[in-house]
Write a protein that binds this DNA or RNA. Structure first.
Lengths: 148, 148
DNA sequence: CGATACCCGATGAAAACACTCGGGTATCGA
DNA sequence: TCGATACCCGAGTGTTTTCATCGGGTATCG
């Protein structure tokens, strides 16, 4: 089970835009300075724009702008935008793809997991990342008292 | 973001073995009757065996046996066994793959999400599936009071 | 000793992923 | 007006992962 790089890159981009909020449009060039391939990032920013998380200004001196306060943007918003909705191998998304449907307990449990993951992703906001100090190493063993 | 079929198939297999616990070794043939490709399922059962979730009896009249009570086997156990650990694009698994490491808030947030998902998966036991009646349709709108 | 049934590494087709390319369009400033 | 800037976007491409399938090996039972 793996999230693709899209989610990570999207998060980098949003994080960068959040840090430079209020400075006017930020060019792709600048955002990509974090190490993400420029033209690939452009695609992802397109997704973020269509999801309403960023807006754009075209033309010279143009660029990307974050549209909402950072505490109103969750990880779920970002990941949904760049990767599409979380989906556990067909069972949960469409009632008709699995002939077991109602009698199938796997279907029920899959739905539970999907809901849980979405809920967890929605708890973490972009603003949480901005205030996070440099101590990821020290807190790996006492990790579940912040949002749990 | 998609969980592969491995997890689902692994779950089908464990569910089948749980239902037929106490009936002696259950042959691959019988387990695959749930609709999973036989030889593919064999691979997954190998993973489940190496993870200690099932044991095997070789030779004629041989087959697979569940090793623990169903309330001691969680979704996390099964998914870890057949898909490997949950991993959100390298950031969390190895300290050295990401040069940002400590200063990177993405790394921190990724760790949060990984921990949360693992915790949720570990809450759901195989025994929860066995007692689940046929009402997945009705409860989709009141889903988060059971384990949350 | 042969039928049964698990064990396991190799192979192969198909899909997903991670980009890359090339051209288009809107805006600014001179 | 014109050119530089910078976003827009569909299509193409090489690599990796996934989802199996195949074929032979080994253990056990009767």
């Amino acid at each position: 089970m793996k999230l693709s790089t899209r989610g990570k890159y999207g998060l980098y981009a949003m994080f960068d835009l959040a840090k430079h909020a209020g400075e006017g449009p930020r060019a792709l060039q600048s955002i990509a300075a974090t190490g993400v391939p420029k033209q690939y990032l452009e695609q992802l920013l397109g997704n973020l724009r269509r999801a309403g998380l960023v807006s754009t200004v075209r033309g010279a001196q143009g660029g990307y702008l974050i549209t909402r306060p950072t505490n109103e943007i969750s990880l779920l918003n970002i990941i949904d935008a760049v990767e599409g909705p979380i989906e556990l191998s067909e069972c949960t998304s469409d009632e008709h793809t699995c002939e077991r449907s109602c009698g199938c307990p796997v279907r029920w449990v899959w739905q539970q997991v999907t809901d849980s993951i979405n809920a967890e992703l929605d708890k973490i906001k972009l603003s949480d990342m901005l205030i996070q100090p440099c101590e990821s190493e020290e807190r790996t063993h006492e990790k579940d008292h912040l949002h749990g």
